[in-house]
């Protein structure tokens, strides 16, 4: 059958039909980096950039507690105490200042990429407010360790939870500074999820003019030639970027490659069978580059 008649191969524009990139913001460095990656994605998908700043319910509750104190990271003049009493008014003042800084950063990125943009402030628990604000066609962008109760190291559970409940892919970024341009890497096992993300990854590679690397997993090696053809079709009229399709010798090698990519973007269809047995968690914890995570499965309860 001619390649043009393959209805199962979604075109780049279909695959990249992203309405909005919704980025969760605060004034932390991680959020600034996430905003930068999100803005790049919005530009690549010609979508709107929307910022959401959440006045978190847990923080407001904390401030109302009679003994609430905050240990500050930024040190004052010598001899000044690191901690201060926290009350609701002070917290709200801090949050609003944080929101203003986030809004300004948002405007700057939007101007840089010439994007339509919006910014909103919500109240509630961070994850819930974010998911509530998201709609079909949205890509949600969060920093690693999103929300006031986020852990420092083991973040994969929270990330997977948001990704599973999100209406679209979840962009996780914000660790190790701004994104470095580089390869778009997709692990592919011919599952429906992988198939959908293949077009997404190809489209991103074309618009970002970045090399596309497809790592064939499981029994997909036979379809190597066909894969190239379909990717070309997905690219539409635009010239294809350098394409590398390869088969890892074993799971360990595959995992190593996914965790060691230090420039570019990782597109992760996490519901692929290959990712079971904690592999997806490992990748989320160890990855050095932003991840576009697509999953519908919630993690098992802790």
């Amino acid at each position: 059958m001619p390649a043009t008649e393959k209805p199962e191969s979604p075109g780049r524009r279909d695959a990249l039909r992203v309405r909005r990139v919704l980025v969760a913001l605060d004034s932390s460095a991680a959020c600034a980096a996430t905003l930068e990656v999100a803005a790049g994605l919005a530009a690549a998908t010609a979508s709107e950039l929307s910022g959401l700043f959440v006045e978190d319910q847990d923080l407001l509750r904390l401030a109302e507690l009679p003994f609430a104190r905050e240990v500050q990271l930024s040190r004052g003049p010598a001899g000044k105490s690191l901690s201060r009493a926290l009350d609701p008014a002070l917290l709200l003042q801090d949050l609003r200042a944080q929101a203003a800084v986030a809004r300004e950063a948002m405007a700057k990125q939007a101007a840089l990429h010439r994007l339509a943009w919006s910014f909103q402030v919500a109240k509630g628990r961070s994850e819930e407010a974010l998911l509530l604000a998201a709609a079909a066609g949205d890509v949600i962008a969060v920093a690693r360790g999103f929300g006031p109760l986020a852990r420092f190291g083991r973040i994969s559970r929270e990330v997977r939870l948001i990704a599973a409940r999100a209406p679209g892919p979840l962009l996780v970024a914000g660790d190790g500074g701004a994104e470095q341009p580089g390869t778009v890497l997709l692990p592919y096992d011919a599952s429906p999820a992988a198939e959908h993300m293949l077009a997404f990854a190809a489209g991103l590679a074309v618009t970002r003019r970045a090399p596309l690397e497809i790592m064939l997993l499981g029994e997909t090696a036979a379809s190597l030639e066909d894969m190239g053809e379909r990717i070309r079709a997905a690219g539409g009229k635009d010239p294809l970027p350098p394409l590398q399709i390869w088969i890892p010798r074993d799971s360990k090698a595959a995992l190593q490659r996914l965790c060691s990519l230090d420039r570019g973007l990782l597109v992760l269809p996490a519901d692929e069978p290959w990712f079971e047995n904690g592999k997806v968690e490992q990748i989320i914890e160890r990855a050095k580059v932003p991840i576009v995570l697509q999953t519908e499965k919630e993690p098992a309860p802790a």
Binding site: P66, L73, R125
Partner: peptide, 25 residues
Amino acid sequence: ALVRTPMGFAFAPMEDGAVMEPKAF
């Protein structure tokens, strides 16, 4: 819980995976 605040960190008692409400406390 160790809670991230706009300027640093704070501790708060937990209840059902969230910061305890002041009334409950």
